[in-house]
Design a protein around this nucleic acid. Structure first.
Length: 605
DNA sequence: ACTATGGAATCCACGGGCAT
DNA sequence: ATGCCCGTGGATTCCATAGT
């Protein structure tokens, strides 16, 4: 194989197919057929500017050019640079775009960069590229450029030229893309390479697809941003792709203001669509380069979460993606001892079974992780029962009584047996109730038992500390005593089952269980041999509970105060919500409410 | 000017009914 | 028990108004 007689130099930006076309022309061939045959190329490769390694090698001999500089002009240059995935989206092969002004001059009919769907105008003439026949509106291929005619008979030289609008966002966008093509990086939110920008664009379109355009382009009637995930669609709708690309560019300019505007619109999409698109977009953040966008994006969802506009599950997605922990995981993460971890593994409710490699393992379910967190916070404050006795100056026996009556709560210490207490709770108990515990007036009522009962009444806000006079106790105490502690045996007592309590309180069974867990209701627990625990409640106790508490909705009817104000008082801690963390209903203590209303002058005595 | 409050509007999540 | 649907409660924001 020998070199050709005439070997023109490569022109600025021309595609390799364009060069082969010129090479044939200057050497006097009527078509490119001869050269293509010599190179070992098929016609469709020529049309799509796809040159194999062998073809380029042969062309280098024919033209006396280096293989590198030839390769750079082929579509494979971008295929190599962007990878297959991005090329599939952004590199057009079967159809072409052309510049009518370039075409008139005749030398350059096709440029390599015009194969990219992000380029829409010719940088030397500032003219919009044409991608379809203006006679029949069908797509054009490279063959049409060579012959000069669309198969319908329309002459390409008769194409109308439209100049780019100066000062438009579209112009700004195109200048940016040419900067990307010329240089390695261009300034964007962060300095981006072509590949970075296309990655960003390919993910972003999942958000924008289907939304109405943020940018006005006068030559487009249809203002819905197209999705170009389907390459076929993308090629057919090249003009609309322009709209998509400019919108993507718009979304990240004036960052993050426009970004948030776009996110707001995205949020209006139906949830079922949104959740998949969201997931798709988030794969962008696998690349750490887009950290700035990620933090703005997460900021947006956090804001929505604060507004209660998104599901909690969506919001928590960022905080913890781990679902299960192995023993090793926990030891490492929380610096636990093996003993402590083993204790956790003895609690079936924390554990899940997973199958890995055909074996079944027990793992710690991350949904209970907060319990470990609480334990870690509690750990430094734990004291033994002996220390509690010292602090409160009480006997070991009384300490056990306080535990039995739930006035002091035992804490579990992982990996250790025995009774442990939170020193802060003990301290609080000491400040509030130690004087009562040691008050001589309870001697009359059976000493310690009476003191415990009274503390319990105060804690339940049934009586206040001001009322602790001898006279009061003599007159009122037996009644309360009867209600709360008369006899721990249920025989002969009127009781409610859990089901009945549920009905009386008008709440769900789950809520009752939560109330038991949180100590709001204190049940009698009866353990049957064959069944799980059954709960019973004293009828009087439940009736009392109902009579001393009031729902916000009922309070609004009973007192001259608005729902919102009561909600605010609860939020500020002015009023206590006894169902906090249990139900979404606020249940107030009516006595507390009345006092507050009186204090603020909402009601008179 | 600043704070507290109420009303309207809006969202999500829960509770409860119902079917399975 | 579990899943689904629907009504409703609470949280939040914006806006207007009253009181200081």
């Amino acid at each position: 194989m020998e070199s050709l007689l005439f070997r023109p130099s490569l022109l600025q930006g021309e595609s390799l197919s364009n060069y082969v076309y010129r090479l044939s022309k200057v050497n006097g061939y009527s078509t490119s057929h001869y050269i293509l045959k010599t190179l070992g190329m098929k016609n469709h490769q020529y049309y799509s500017n796809s040159f194999s390694y062998d073809a380029i090698k042969n062309l280098a001999i024919l033209s006396l050019k280096s293989e590198e500089e030839l390769f750079e002009r082929s579509a494979e240059f971008y295929l190599q640079k962007l990878g297959k995935q991005l090329s599939n989206i952004f590199l057009i092969k079967t159809t072409i775009k052309f510049c009518p002004s370039c075409y008139e001059v005749g030398d350059i009919i096709h440029k390599r960069d015009w194969q990219l769907t992000l380029v829409h105008y010719c940088d030397s003439h500032k003219v919009q590229l044409i991608d379809m026949c203006q006679g029949c509106e069908s797509k054009l291929n490279f063959g049409a450029l060579i012959t000069g005619y669309c198969p319908c008979g329309f002459h390409l030289l008769e194409s109308q030229v439209s100049h780019i609008e100066t000062g438009s966002l579209f112009e700004e966008y195109q200048e940016f893309t040419y900067l990307l093509l010329e240089k390695k990086t261009a300034p964007f939110i962060i300095p981006v390479s072509l590949k970075d920008f296309l990655t960003l664009a390919s993910k972003t379109i999942t958000l924008l697809g289907g939304m109405s355009s943020f940018v006005m382009l006068d030559d487009l009637n249809d203002r819905e941003i197209p999705s170009f995930t389907s390459r076929y669609q993308g090629e057919l709708e090249n003009e609309r792709l322009k709209l998509a690309m400019v919108n993507i560019f718009w979304m990240y300019s004036n960052f993050p203001s426009n970004f948030y505007k776009a996110m707001d619109d995205f949020y209006q999409k139906p949830y079922t669509n949104r959740k998949y698109q969201k997931k798709q977009f988030e794969t962008l953040f696998e690349n750490p380069r887009f950290e700035v966008i990620q933090s703005a994006y997460e900021g947006y969802w956090n804001l929505q979460a604060r507004k209660q506009n998104v599901h909690r599950a969506l919001n928590e997605k960022y905080s913890d993606q781990k679902y299960n922990y192995t023993k090793k995981d926990l030891i490492k993460k929380y610096n636990l001892t093996r003993n402590e971890v083993d204790t956790l593994w003895r609690k079936p409710r924390f554990l899940k079974e997973v199958t890995r490699g055909g074996n079944t393992y027990k793992v710690f379910s991350a949904e209970f992780e907060h319990e470990i967190n609480e334990y870690m916070l509690l750990k430094p404050h734990l004291v033994t029962r002996k220390e509690v006795c010292k602090m409160l100056k009480i006997s070991d026996f009384l300490a056990m009584r306080l535990v039995g009556t739930q006035l002091l709560r035992c804490k579990e210490v992982l990996g250790r047996e025995g009774y442990f207490f939170d020193i802060r709770e003990v301290q609080k108990f000491k400040e509030r109730y130690n004087s009562i515990l040691h008050n001589p007036i309870f001697v009359e009522y059976g000493e310690i038992s009476a003191a415990i009962k009274i503390i319990k009444l105060i804690k339940s806000k049934i009586i206040s500390t001001d009322e602790l006079s001898i006279e009061f106790l003599q007159s009122e105490f037996p009644r309360y005593e009867k209600i709360w502690f008369a006899n721990h045996q249920l025989r002969g007592k009127q009781v409610y089952s859990l089901e009945q309590v549920r009905e009386r309180l008008r709440v769900d069974g789950k809520a009752v269980h939560k109330m038991i867990d949180k100590g709001v209701l204190i049940p009698f627990e009866i353990r049957f041999h064959t069944e799980s625990n059954r709960y019973y409640f004293l009828k009087e106790e439940i009736d009392l509970f109902l009579s001393v508490h009031i729902k916000i909705a009922d309070a609004v009817l009973a007192y001259p105060v608005s729902k919102i104000t009561l909600q605010r008082w609860v939020n500020k801690g002015i009023l206590q919500n006894v169902l906090e963390g249990i139900s979404n209903t606020n249940l107030l203590i009516e006595r507390e409410l009345k006092e507050e209303l009186l204090r603020r002058g909402y009601i008179l005595s």
